[in-house]
Design a binder for these strands. Structure first.
Lengths: 214, 214
DNA sequence: GACGACATACCGACCAGTTGGTATGTTCGG
DNA sequence: CCGAACATACCAACTGGTCGGTATGTCGTC
């Protein structure tokens, strides 16, 4: 939970601004009802602000979506950065730790653990280039972090393997996003969890580990 | 492309009904603009029919979505049933053939190769139980076909393995759906294709094959 | 008293769905 | 074989409500 990146310092002990409340509302409501299915009025109501406040801070609904993608990036970046798996010295353990962590945080209701970016880009990829671009950028930058550890792990353990660390990092995101879609279809997280376990086993295979077939 | 299941025979050389034209339009337009982002007027315009025709055949927009899921099932079932990979005698070859086939048919524009069900369920899982249910049913029945071959292949090649064929079949769909989401984010099919290759390699691993790391 | 941060009230466009109608069968008694 | 009764398939115009967005007012702070 990053405090808002205020350019101007100040606001001592001030309550959350309408802007932050709207971004929070977007993160939750859009994941529940979809982007097009969420009206500006819905967001204002969820945030407890008026429409005037909305258009004071955002030029348009699309503008909010782009800002929400950035907001999502700030939040999740800080969240993953603070996760315990970073303590591992072996980069492969960090990668596997990340995957285990992703599996563990699948809890609560669907609108809480699914990905805002996957939801938005699925709807807006063709109708809003700005939203598509924002989602791609955030997803790719998240994947790049994993790609770093994967590249280091590859260099350390299987330097001669032919697979590409960046591509494999993106594949992990494919499995996550697909897990979310299927979790929505099944209305439960079980399939997403088992899919992440399959992903884990695959990566262990790629590193020559013989996975414990629990 | 199943001809419409007319209860009454007749209609010799009759042109496509408004109903079929609307279902076709739904399959294409919804994949492009999303479910909530597609208006009834959009569909009527794309189908070249009037709104009266729409509500003559469908009780509501939601009703059309449910029918479109079934229509999608009829179409894709026939499509995959006619695919060449069924000729293989070894069920594992059929599974790998299916995966290769899925990779090959990723062509053209995104709205042509992505999955209608994944698009709809992502938006409607919370707001429309009927649509969610329809999508789940169709996806699961498709996965069940793959699960059959996977179960046979497991029995034949690795009877003592601990993984579950049905779960693995669903995992293949997770990768497909995730590939589509990421393809939309990247605005191109490359990542979906490479992800399907990763999936292929994983399954080869599970069957003890040493995949050619092409 | 100026300005940023909101609130209130409102607009035209568009939305899903309805209505009342027509054109074209289909059925079946006589 | 005919024609009244009914059914199906569709159309054009319309309705009430919701949409994204705007114009203007108010209030607290520097």
């Amino acid at each position: 939970m990053p405090s808002r990146p205020t350019t101007k310092i100040k606001q001592p002990a001030q309550k959350r601004s309408a802007k932050d409340k709207l971004l929070d509302a977007a993160v939750h409501v859009v994941r529940q009802k979809g982007y097009a299915g969420t009206s500006v009025d819905d967001l204002c109501k969820a945030a407890g602000v008026t429409k005037g406040a909305f258009f004071h801070h955002f030029e348009s609904k699309e503008d909010l979506a782009v800002a929400a993608a950035q907001y999502w990036n700030d939040f999740t970046s800080a969240f993953f950065r603070s996760a315990p798996y970073h303590a591992h010295k072996d980069p492969l353990d960090r990668v596997l730790g990340y995957i285990d962590f992703r599996r563990q945080i699948i809890q609560g209701s669907l609108q809480d653990y699914t990905c805002l970016l996957g939801t938005m880009v699925q709807e807006a990829y063709e109708t809003s280039p700005r939203i598509r671009q924002a989602c791609e950028t955030v997803i790719s930058s998240h994947a790049a972090v994993i790609a770093n550890d994967l590249a280091a792990a590859k260099k350390l353990h299987v330097p001669d393997a032919t697979w590409d660390p960046q591509e494999l990092a993106l594949f992990t995101q494919v499995v996550m996003q697909g897990g979310f879609v299927m979790a929505k279809a099944k209305h439960g997280p079980e399939l997403a969890e088992s899919s992440i376990l399959h992903l884990r086993r695959y990566i262990e295979f790629l590193f020559g580990r013989n996975p414990t077939t629990q």
